[in-house]
Design a protein around this nucleic acid. Sequence first.
RNA 1: GCGAGGGUGGCUGAGCCUGGCCAAAGGCGGCGGGCUUAAGACCCGCUCCCGUAGGGGUCCCUGGGUUCGAAUCCCAGCCCUCGCACCA
Length: 905
Amino acid sequence: MSSADATEQHRFDHAAIEPKWQRAWEEADVFRIDDDAVDPAYVLAMFPYASGELHMGHVRNYTITDAFARFERLRGEDVLHPMGWDSFGLPAENAAEDRDTNPREWTMGCIETMRDQLIRMGFGYDWEREVTTCDPEYYRWNQWLFNRFNEEGLVSRDAREVNWCPDCETVLADEQVEGEDERCWRCDTRVDSRELDQWMFTITDYADELRDALEEMDGWPNNVRQMQQNWIGRQDGASVEFDVAGYGPVEIFTTRLDTIYGATFFAIAPGHDLAQQLVDEHEAVAEYVARAESDEELPETSGVFTGMHATNPATGEEIPVYVADYVLEDVGTGALYAVPAHDDRDHAFATEHEIPIRQVVAPAESVTTGPGDDDAESGVDTTDESVVDDLDVQQQAYTEDGVLVNSGAYDGLTSEEAREHFVEEFDGEFRTEYRLRDWLISRQRYWGTPIPVVHCDTCGFVPVPDEELPVELPEFVHTTGNPLDAADEWKHTACPECGGDAVRETDTMDTFVDSSWYFLRFISPDAEDIPFDAEHASDWMPVDRYVGGIEHAVMHLLYARFFTKVFDDIGMIDGVREPFTNLVNQGMVLGEDGFKMSKSRGNGVSPVRIIDEYGADTARLFIMEAAQPQKEFAWSPEGVDSANQFLQRVYALVSEFAAGEIETGDGGPVDSYVEEEIDATVVTVSEEFEAFRFNHAIQAVRDLVSLLRQYADHTEPDEDVFERAVFAVTKLLAPVAPHVTEEMWDLLDGDGLVAEAAWPTATKSDEYELGKRLVENTREDIRDIVSVVGIESPSRIEIAVAPAWKHRVREIAAETDGNVIGAVMQHDDLKRHGQDAADYAQDLVGKEHFEAQLSPEDERDALDSAAWLIEREFDAEVAVYSADDAPDDLASKAVPGRPGINIEE
RNA sequence: GCGAGGGUGGCUGAGCCUGGCCAAAGGCGGCGGGCUUAAGACCCGCUCCCGUAGGGGUCCCUGGGUUCGAAUCCCAGCCCUCGCACCA
């Protein structure tokens, strides 16, 4: 192959151009945003954990935000698009152990590598705002915030049954334990429980608002909102006391107070205080509690009678008290009255233990009497037998709301009314319970933010004063336990209050504290006396577009919401209650085999290898056109190839044009056709970018490029039109393939950098859509005829649009409800066409829906400007006629939207 | 079990919100043609069934319904994916 080959001259070498433009952007400070920018578009990707290598998931995540940020910038917006490092955490400690280094050095090395890889991908960040959470200049603010939270009463230290991961050797928050079998979110190890004194943020103070605000957050995916709602798990109910003879009052929580008359037994959790007391005196209870507390999996209906009885405040009845494992200690009060007729679990338990089942609620539709009617029992509507016959609470619990029966004076009340009444009647109170627990932030690890507290024997726990912050981590030492415990010199300090001997808290903070406010630090990364500038943050927040993985649906996203609300409440920010307006969870990048990329499967694809082989632009383009951001897709070498070829093709087109190798002249009607297509493409791409459907946007650009190639092949394109087209293509592609488009911009002698150019604008008319449809339909009709009739090679194709009077008839028909023919014939100008007009009107009788149509002139223009496509396709002469000029009776066969066609062989 | 999201042509996947050129985009695969010495790449078509002039039939998980008209709206059922779950 000769190196002078024409196509060779119009190819680009990604390895040469990519670093060049990366430097150019940096030198021009393209991605910097001034502090005085007003309400910029805040485009953010979840910052990466500093693991050392970028993987395809990162690349996808950051390609999405980068393309969008570039798009916004081209549209003239100020854009805040920062990047930082989630860089505290256990993996760095493990790596340090394995490699004879320390977490800091290891982490800093990882950051260097990853930053370099981000740059090589062409991602444009304002690096002046880079944030690194393991830097004392960052984590000091975690400590400062801890003090503020403490002052606000949002910090607590309690002995609690906590999740302990034996592998990570630390406690975990509830959010960080996953699945039915309770595994650590990071290492998948089964989690134990331990009783420990731990520091907590009282996120439960915000449970209500965290839950309620979700309803309004329509910029978030439903599944994430649903997950948070489940997690918070609000239950509106009531608490009531039952007196247990020989023990005293026991409080229960229920959402179904209406069923209280049906309580036939009482159940408490093995961990409940009453059960614990009985352990000493009751052998069977002791044995059962021991089994429940062991790892043993007890049957769902297991339980043991305590020999004690509770008094139902509604009926005055004595009901037996059981210890049952299905009653959970940390749900409600750990005690409940059981109504087997109306609860599935109670029903199963009652059946197993031969406890009576008493119905107290009937389906509303089966009872004819209204609320307040005492005669409810006789009011069962026997005409609707199916409902009554189906309902046998001895067989199965009826768990829906309904109307009360067998409930003394309250029969006939609806469930809802009864719940209202009974609270007062039985001396209870309305109560809301949450599944959400306070956020346990203590971690028994080295590589995290030291909790800024010292313990003094005389003063107790004393916060480290702000002016002594940061409490910096001591040197890392290799030890079996927590290195902070081993750092004697660091650990022993003076009490800030009394000056006496004191010891530092050796627990560090959960790393999710770091990520709960990093998006605010980006706004004023150099702020010295405060974590972030209040005024600035109030203007720049919330984040407009946040993109990241679904794995943080509950953890990070819930904590960040909590922090934001606290900041607003303590005046650190003004009027920002939610941090992220629009959230997108990008889908997974699967391996070529359709499975999740993993080491064990060996189906991973390294971003660095793809950059080396094809270039960053190709990787970015492939990822963006493979699927919409929230959908998963499988890696495909063909797709990568196709992306690469397309970029080469576009580049070649521009390059040939720039080199004057494309003959220009007068393309006739083709010129205006192409012009319209350019406008249409600009409109589509803008809309699709905005809607985060990048694949559709790219498809539109591909179509335009393909059209331009045909344009140049078919005729001598108008120079201005062609130039406008290549400029538009360059800009439209720039957010996704930034390097090669800079190269193209350069060839075209564009001003400055395309990264800083102005996005093209255009409008698309209704006529355009109609014209496009007309052309498409006409082409299809021609293909149809040619193939059905079996015309080998057509020599001439004649097309004639319908006469104006048919358009008039159609218009009248569309407006007329009744006698279409009569209505048409009232018009003298149409009467002239006599039978023809009547016939066509007859065709339209009964037609209910009329599509919009072009005028005869517009139809003719649309077909005329597209005639060249038909000529190319059929290699035949094409003639487009108005009705008057058409030969023979060609136009008589035409109707609006459907020209007459004649094909000659 | 509760909740969320789904089920579209050989595959993948848009459309569904806002019913109407929807036999249903794009891609992949397959077929035919062009270009080429040839292959690849590229370009142009075809790819549910029938049809010698643009026609007809069947079709978007299943079954009902609303409507002049349903892939699209409503009801019931079946199946899939995800989240939560012995939650009072």
